[in-house]
Design a binder for these strands. Structure first.
Lengths: 208, 208, 208, 208
DNA sequence: GATGAATGAGCGTTCATTCAT
DNA sequence: GATGAATGAACGCTCATTCAT
């Protein structure tokens, strides 16, 4: 009986924590962090103002959890897209397309909040974010290496530089899409980059 | 009774306005907008709390001025870099390098604040920002067209798509540089893109 | 989770609202509206500064409630006095005496604040006050008509003009009493008016 | 030369003082005392913000001067009306009519501000106001006595009680007129009182 | 003497956090 | 454990007053 209770309680706690996080994510993204009150989050999560402090010790901790979740989601998005798409250049660009096409301005806003927090706290969340970004870049680099191995793109290109470029393009276009809503334009830019890379596979890239 | 004061006044007002703007830019960038109080800005500008309201009617107006200045600076940065660099592909990448290499995390933070504000107020500041970005992209497109005209890059490429790509790369790498401080890596990514583009000039881009 | 609180809540809210209103009435009357801070009211009501905003959305709303209460009290005072006094001329003057004799300078100050607010906002509170005054005058007119019906005062007198006169006397003497504290003098003036009216019942009023 | 300067200066000071007072009267009456800033008054008077402090040591002193002026004006209005109207009952009611018919809500507002201030500071301005009111009542009493002497109204009536009544009526009707704008109704009420008084002259007032 | 920019205390209001129920 | 009323520090802003020019 104790065990059943405990398990239920833990599940309950997890569920509530998830509700609160989801509420916080939604509100922090749409209204902004400072314009969202703890009472707002509690109401959105369907609990009382005070109850939120049983799950998070304060707004800062809640924010940290939201940021952590946002970063995890970002990384997971890349990972899932990569896993689902095989290993060729086409796969790489399917990833890019998926990432780019989610021009949800809410997601983007939260992402920007994380970027801002990282800039302002390079040791804390900034460090964590660098890890996440490194992981993503490593992921990209794996796909790049595979494309180089198959000869689709020039094998002499610096895989790190290329993955940096691709990551930058992904971030830049995501921002672009969120701001303008012009998804097709971003896709065309991405296609263009793909064709340039294929060209490198065909003719080889001349030295710098 | 007007003349005695008048000579000092306009210069004085401009100077104070500039002081306040500079203080606001510094604090909004480093601490964040909501965590910066009007008293903070005033203190940083070397004036009293109340005095700030002679120059800006309120925090919102101050913020708008800061944003406007940030956007103007962004556009001017591109414009100046373009003007100083001639018209070839090399010029284009000198622009990119300049933009990318300023990995000042303060500038970047303010830029991100503008992006966030734009996402949350698409009609207001968002509209203004789209105009600024369109102007920048148009600038880039001019350089692209010149490079296509000289045969340095494939003339069949969609100039709009390419300028979108280049703008995205610039933004993505600027973020990257600000976050990691790794300027050389960004420069390598940029070089890689330059070589890909030159390759298109030599061999022509195959159809999509 | 509703039931445990619910029973207390409404009573509690009403009690607190009443406390706050009473505190506001006392302070607005004695210090003046603008010299009374929300913190003053809260302290007088025995709650914290912030708590007051759970009961009233702001100072303006609190003021409106105080004014409404003041006007209701004014009207009720007349009404109760009228109900308690029957219908003759004597009744009319008992009403007058009651109204006049309450030379409480606090009540009077609040009443004057309402008058001032009405003068400055004729559409808003001014309109509400005119309604209240019309109701009071109608009340007086009923008593006047009864006195005319019984022959105590001249039936040919314009009942509206007479009630206007009586209302003006009441207001003028209330002010007088509050200012000088000289209740007996006001009562003598009122008696004199009563005798003049009785004279009209005995001899009839000559035409204008 | 000193004398000329001095006289001019004194005249200048008086003129400026008058300008400021007039500006303050206008603004205190229309906007209210607390909503009128010293800068508002200065601007309305055509001088600089700081200059006002050469003529009045502070807002409180300015307010006191405004109140003093308002009270003097009130008394003077009665006095002038009385002087211009001779000594009979008709004169009395011409005075009443003049006082009552000025249903200017601005004047009234300022008068109410004085009343309020008197209620709140019975020792200070309240005492001064009682003196002024006593003077006015004495004035009225003179007219009353004259009317009693001529037999127009019953000579047995207590002149003090009657003048209190008349003063109260004047104040009540002035308020009424300012609030409703219904001057004719006030005049009818006044006429009615006049006829009641004349009736006392014809038939004599029975004892209380 | 006049000016009006500057000062800074103080106001109305909000909200993260606590705690009696 | 949950509730939501209460707290009070802190914010944006105003304005009476001062004082360098």
């Amino acid at each position: 009986m104790m065990l059943t209770m405990a398990r239920l309680t833990q599940a309950h706690v997890d569920a509530r924590t998830g509700d609160i996080l989801a509420a916080a994510v939604a509100l922090f993204a749409s209204r902004g962090i400072e314009k969202t009150t703890m009472a707002d989050v509690a109401a959105e999560a369907g609990i009382s103002t005070g109850a939120i402090y049983r799950y998070f010790p304060g707004k800062e901790a809640l924010l940290a959890a939201v940021f952590e979740r946002e970063m995890r989601d970002s990384a997971a998005q890349f990972e899932r897209a990569a896993e689902a798409s095989g290993m060729g250049l086409a796969a790489l660009f399917q990833v890019g397309e998926k990432v780019t096409s989610t021009g949800d301005s809410q997601d983007c806003a939260l992402w920007l909040e994380v970027e801002l927090a990282s800039l302002r706290d390079p040791e804390g969340i900034g460090g964590r974010q660098r890890d996440v970004h490194d992981a993503i870049r490593a992921n990209i680099q794996t796909l790049v290496a595979a494309s180089q191995g198959s000869g689709e793109i020039d094998a002499s290109m610096d895989a790190e530089a290329l993955s940096t470029l691709l990551f930058a393009v992904a971030r830049g276009l995501q921002l672009e899409t969120a701001e303008t809503g012009n998804g097709p334009r971003s896709r065309e830019a991405l296609d263009l980059l793909g064709r340039l890379l294929r060209l490198s596979g065909e003719h080889g890239l001349p030295p710098a």
